[in-house]
Nucleic acid binder design. Structure first.
Lengths: 217, 217
DNA sequence: TGATGTGAAGCGGTTCACAGCG
DNA sequence: CGCTGTGAACCGCTTCACATCA
């Protein structure tokens, strides 16, 4: 099976499947059909089989999939066979919340460095990680071998921080600042914007209330 | 122009355009072409024109769009002409971070109620909002006229909380718990899962390193 | 028998290319 | 002349339907 082009939505779903499968694993379920799995993660069975078939065939006809095997397979595909070293830039409200988020180490992500500019935060240790001054970013990132970064700075600084991160060798960035980051194409960036999500929900609310407007403006 | 079916990705982009346009407004820019706007938010000019054309025609040929008019138009489309009352369930790390997040009120979302089960948090006021016991959810939600809710509870409680929310009349839910919420189709749900985003990034990192694997498993 | 794996069909979103208009 | 608005072409993801095989 050749390594094909995988769409972003497929990758998202693979993560979704994995999340559900781990849940099943905790419940000691050891075999599952694409149909049951579909119900658990809000997909369709055909979609699941198609997604998996992009990488190989992992099921047994007439029976279904082995939960533990499929977990291992998906972890392999997603690159979760290793632990990832994460740096956090910006130790404000969101940043601190992430530092204390137990699911990160539990799922293979170790926050090994944190940066901020505010003098009163420097040197303090939050959830076992010392907060370093932003000037030392390049140095610490290289020294500790950081692979993934989370940006939780104000929007004004995000682009600049991002540039410094990838110049220091970070190739994946999760951005919580509400700005579009422009980046070289060999750097992977995803942005999470809470307000944007809320706005999307509100569109649906107001759209329902006006089901058949004739002229828009 | 009839009210058409708008895809989720279009709605997301409209929010994206709006974010960039507000930025432009702050810089006193008053007219912009689809092309320049495209550069600012990582889209294509054709995409922007197509998206907008679903709702009407708002530009001037040969000139571009009026920034302030387009902001107003998009706010109208997205239902942001009003302020929304938000309830927060779960005042842990993420919940507290959201309570203190200034962009919410700034962008039209007022957190008017917060709930938790932990006795030591009850009655305390976080960022101007009193934390109420979870039992009072229905009562407070109805009393205050809450329209939108944010779930930031542990995953085990999320589904139950969600059900109670929509039974109390909440029609839009932003969910930070890493579980698939099943909901009636007249309730809008979006889930933000930080670990899932990180996993997606890691796929790209490892996929780059193995550009042409011949046999997958 | 029952569920997988997968070509083929269907569909919806994106891009193209240009007519239309200020 | 420049940029919008938009039908038409294109492309890729999703769904269907069934041959396949444990």
């Amino acid at each position: 099976m050749k390594q094909p082009k995988i769409s972003d939505s497929t990758v998202r779903r693979l993560s979704l499947y994995l999340r559900a499968l781990r849940e099943l694993q905790r419940m000691d379920r050891d075999v599952i059909s694409s149909q049951s799995l579909a119900r658990l993660c809000g997909a369709t069975s055909a979609q699941i089989r198609k997604d998996l078939s992009l990488f190989g065939s992992f099921g047994k006809r007439g029976r279904g999939y082995s939960v533990s095997e499929l977990v291992a397979t998906l972890e392999g595909i997603l690159g979760l066979g290793q632990r990832w070293k994460v740096a956090l830039v910006g130790v404000g409200k969101i940043g601190s919340a992430l530092l204390g988020y137990r699911d990160l180490p539990r799922r293979g992500f170790d926050v090994v460095a944190a940066f901020d500019t505010a003098a009163e935060k420097l040197g303090r240790t939050v959830a076992g990680v010392e907060v370093s001054p932003l000037e030392e970013l390049e140095e610490v990132v290289r020294e500790k071998g950081v692979e993934v970064a989370v940006i939780a700075t104000p929007p004004e600084s995000a682009q600049e921080v991002a540039r410094r991160l990838w110049e220091a060798g970070v190739a994946a960035i999760l951005n919580f600042a509400p700005v579009k980051l422009s980046s070289p194409e060999d750097v992977a960036v995803r942005t999470v914007d809470v307000v944007l999500e809320l706005e999307g929900l509100c569109y649906l609310l107001t759209a329902e209330e006006r089901p058949h407007v004739e002229v828009w403006r």
